[in-house]
Amino acid sequence: MEEPLDLIRLSIDERVYVKCRNDRELRGRLHAYDQHLNMVLSDVEETITTTEEDEETGEEIVSKKTRSVGMLFVRGDIIVLVSPPLRTS
């Protein structure tokens, strides 16, 4: 592997995990990307994690919402991390 983007190129047509800004996570099949990391994913599951503070106890309440999208274009500038599926090589 010569450059980091090679890792993404090797993940075409594979399911990938994408960590985005604002505690959003995506899992889906990668069909396209460019040098900005704009992407098209299919069979996407998005998980949004929100933390609220309980007014009385001050405890942090973590809640996760998920939704499914058939085909999704993701703008690269919100992406923090991409992890390909575990490969046996």
Partner: peptide, 23 residues
């Protein structure tokens, strides 16, 4: 942030070939 598309409107094979070519 996102654009949601109808999967029927996308030829994924074509898209992957174009991606491999471009990158």
């Amino acid at each position: 942030r996102y654009v949601q598309i109808d999967p029927k409107d996308v030829d994924t094979e074509l898209l992957q070939d174009a991606t491999r070519k471009e990158n």
